[in-house]
């Protein structure tokens, strides 16, 4: 599949998955890959504290929009920017925009924000998504990547519009919820990319999340990203001692054992992940994009480039988008 077609499928991509599967890594990879295709990209974070800036070689993000990388595209344009949204800030901005700035000050000073949020569950989520919708409508970037909260919560988060329509039947919040629902249900404006790793529990959970999201929220699902796939190496079956003899190389004491143990470990991992990837294919009829495990604990700019390359190779191999 063509890169432009892939990134042109919707302006907003929501990245979701359970904790620890690398949601932020995938958000960063999508942004880096889109930039390489000449698209300006905005990564929106809702959780605060994340490893995103470090992946681009930057320090902590503030709440203001920041540029993570300049001109990643072929013609030197296509910046990657990022910003963090909080529900409190989104509510205050919302009230200000609706001529209720005096109210917003009181809400903060009395701490009534919590009371309002409890009275109308989902209001915080809807305000965040409302803000994202505003960015999408304004065309804040060619591609907007929303790094969603961790899985269980992702469903609640994306379902907030529906929940809220049940509680708040009139007024501006109701209108906001309708707009957000319109965005989530419009597959040409928004799609959800689910992230998992090739292990049993994460595979089970991503399958469950995918069906819940489709049934309960009505969002369009893009390809599943399988993160942390250990790259295949051929030739790990040979016996190190015999191979050394044939190559006329002498091994240090213990070296043959280390080579054999490492090879057995890698073969085991490859077999396990092949099984899990197969299971995912069987249980979820969505195309997969696989990102390699890079044998590092810290993704930096160079690693991100490798991942972006792998993602684009995966896109090349896609027959078409599920939606």
């Amino acid at each position: 599949m063509d890169h432009d077609e892939f990134f042109g499928a919707s302006r907003l991509v929501i990245v979701a998955g359970k904790g620890g599967v690398g949601k932020t890594t995938v958000s960063a990879t999508l942004a880096r890959a889109a930039a390489r295709c000449g698209l300006s990209t905005l990564v929106v974070e809702v959780d605060g504290r994340s490893g995103l800036p470090a992946m681009f070689g930057r320090g902590e993000l503030g709440y203001d929009e920041a540029v993570l990388s300049v001109g990643g595209g072929p013609d030197g344009t296509a910046d990657v920017r990022a910003r963090t949204l909080t529900a409190d800030a989104a509510l205050l901005e919302y009230l200000r925009d609706h001529g209720l700035s005096r109210l917003s000050k009181r809400l903060v000073s009395t701490g009534a924000l919590d009371v309002v949020a409890t009275a109308a569950p989902g209001i915080k989520d809807i305000l965040l998504l409302g803000k994202v919708k505003q960015l999408e409508r304004a065309g804040a970037a060619d591609l907007i990547v929303l790094d969603a909260p961790a899985a269980g919560h992702a469903i609640t988060f994306l379902q907030s519009a529906r929940t809220l329509l049940d509680t708040v039947s009139v007024g501006p919040i109701n209108a906001q919820a309708r707009d957000v629902l319109g965005l989530l249900e419009d597959h040409r404006r928004c799609q959800v990319v689910l992230v998992t790793i090739p292990e049993e529990t994460p595979v089970n959970e991503v399958v469950e999340t995918a069906y819940s999201l489709e049934d309960r929220v009505g969002v369009g699902l893009g390809p599943i990203v399988v993160n942390g796939v250990v790259p295949e190496i051929a030739g790990l079956e040979v016996d190190p001692g015999e191979a050394a003899e044939r190559a006329g190389v002498s091994l240090r004491p213990g070296e043959a054992e280390a080579l054999a143990a490492a090879a057995a470990f890698r073969r085991g991992r490859m077999a396990l992940q092949a099984e899990q990837i197969g299971r995912l294919e069987d249980r979820l009829p969505l195309p997969q994009l696989r990102l390699p495990f890079l044998f590092t604990t810290d993704i930096g700019p160079a690693d991100l480039d490798v991942l972006a390359g792998a993602l684009l190779d995966g896109v090349d191999a896609l027959a078409g988008l599920p939606i």
């Binding site: 051929a234 030739g235 191979a243 190559a247 280390a258 080579l259 470990f265 044998f295």
Partner: peptide
């Protein structure tokens, strides 16, 4: 040793030792 049969074995061992060292650092 990449031209020999040992190449793949060493590459694998190197990758695993690298990630292990980084993990132990953290």
């Amino acid at each position: 040793l990449q031209a020999t049969e040992l190449g793949a074995l060493y590459r694998n061992l190197a990758e695993l030792r690298t990630v292990s060292a980084r993990e132990l650092d953290h």
